[in-house]
């Protein structure tokens, strides 16, 4: 079981590492932002797996914090875009 959890977490961490390519190359801000959303989701998954593995429900609080605040970035970006295109500066 130990090995299983480790493999899952390492796989998720590698997912983050692969996602960095999009941050590096992503032509638009939106591409990069979506990658950070992916990071947030992956980070939450890691936290959930860790919470199950170490049986510590406190980790879930960190996961929920990530979750509820992820929306802030998306809305912030939508507003930035709108203003950049000059609709309502």
């Amino acid at each position: 079981m130990d090995v299983f959890f480790t493999i899952v977490i390492v796989f998720l961490l590698l997912n983050i590492a692969v996602g960095l390519i999009r941050v590096w190359r992503g032509p638009t801000v939106a591409d990069r932002l979506l990658t950070t959303q992916l990071f947030g989701t992956t980070g939450m998954a890691i936290l959930l797996v860790l919470a199950g593995y170490l049986e510590d429900p406190d980790f879930l609080n960190v996961a929920i914090t990530f979750n509820v605040l992820a929306i802030l970035l998306v809305i912030g970006l939508v507003k930035v875009w709108k203003k950049k295109k000059g609709e309502s500066p």
Binding site: I16, L20, V23, R32, L33, T36, F39, G43, F66
Partner: peptide, 21 residues
């Protein structure tokens, strides 16, 4: 600058995971 900003978000996430560990 955009790369820096979004890499910083990823950095914050990794840091949070490290604090949990």
């Amino acid at each position: 600058l955009t790369q820096t900003v979004f890499l910083f978000f990823a950095f914050g996430l990794a840091l949070a995971l490290a604090w949990v560990r």
